[in-house]
């Protein structure tokens, strides 16, 4: 109940929520650093780190996609002000995940990496997801939103849906045999994307009438 109250009153304390969220989102990374330092990541710590970073990029992506449905269902419009930070954490964890591949798996053997990108579908789609994430991260600042204009900005950022699908497929394709976890992610993603298709008047109306204004800080 206390939590519910705090959240429903969130509008007045968005700054505090942002600081708390910033710290909480770093926990998965700190856990890995701690584990690597104390050698508690198991027999194959590099594999553990790579997978964990990938999972958290995907987790944060789904959490980011929860913001709009949650806002619509609860009426807490202030939640929108947390979305950019969550989205940037997706980029942050995806970048680290990609770095472990480039460094700890391929040791910057660019020839091998390029071969991988063309030859291995799960790498191809993972790289595509990251390539699409890049412009979203670069246009996440207030200045870029203004420069692009709300309409273009929103259109560009719809890429997040494509990225989410690519990310889940990337996971599905790399699993050796047991696809139960990718299947769970797929179901969650379907729910989150389905909400956007089915919720009356979601998004489209604003775009068509040109009334869209990005969230103000």
């Amino acid at each position: 109940m206390a939590w519910w109250f705090a959240l429903s009153q969130g509008k007045r304390h968005v700054g505090l929520f942002k600081i708390a969220l910033f710290a909480v989102c770093l926990i998965p990374l700190l856990r890995l650093v701690w584990g690597a330092w104390n050698d508690t990541l198991g027999a194959n710590p590099i594999e553990f780190i790579t997978r964990s970073l990938g999972s958290w990029a995907l987790n944060f992506l789904l959490i980011t996609l929860c913001v709009t449905p949650l806002r619509k269902l609860t009426g807490w419009n202030w939640l929108l002000q947390l979305r950019r930070m969550l989205g940037l954490y997706v980029f942050f964890y995806a970048s680290l995940h990609l770095s472990t591949y480039l460094w700890l798996d391929k040791f910057f053997d660019w020839q091998e990496i390029v071969k991988d990108i063309f030859k291995r579908p799960f790498i191809t789609i993972g790289m595509s997801a990251f390539a699409m994430l890049l412009p979203l991260a670069l246009t996440s600042t207030k200045g870029m939103v203004r420069r692009l204009g709300g309409l273009h900005w929103q259109r560009l950022h719809r890429l997040i849906y494509v990225i989410a699908i690519c990310a889940v497929v990337h996971y599905w394709w790399l699993v050796k045999l047991d696809v139960s976890l990718p299947a769970i992610y797929s179901v969650l993603l379907c729910i989150l994307l389905g909400f956007r298709l089915l919720w009356p008047g979601q998004g489209r109306r604003n775009v068509i009438s040109g009334n869209f204004k990005p969230a103000q800080e």
Binding site: L29, V33, A36, D39, P45, I49, L96, S99
Partner: peptide, 9 residues
Amino acid sequence: MLSIPARRT
């Protein structure tokens, strides 16, 4: 950013 100490093997 992320440093991995050599495992004590």
